[in-house]
Amino acid sequence: MHNVGFALEGAWKVLLAGVILGAGLPALFALGIRSLAWGAGGDAEVHGAGAGPAANPAGKVLAWVLFAVVLLGVVLGITFIVASGFGKALSFEHVFPTIVDK
């Protein structure tokens, strides 16, 4: 059953990439939303009795930084689809992704 071995070998890689990109990016996005609420203050988050915390501009900045990171991940995903369609591949050899020939 050589195929089972090959399949398991592929499966854990897919699982790893899936957890990092498929659960990690949404987690960052969720953090972004949390910061957005933090930045808005008031009733955006559950708070004790009385008026909510004051608005905090840092929250807004942090939120958009996080959204930008997520967006970057998505752009990488699209680049990957397009690149492999044209017979190219994404290489992470130099840490930042570059498009190379397959």
Binding site: G10, K13, A17, G18, G22, A23, L25, G77, S84
Partner: peptide, 14 residues
């Protein structure tokens, strides 16, 4: 997100 990541990762790995 999970679907997109799994589909892309697996087609990358053949």
């Amino acid at each position: 997100s999970a679907s997109a990541a799994v589909i892309l990762a697996s087609s990358h790995l053949g």
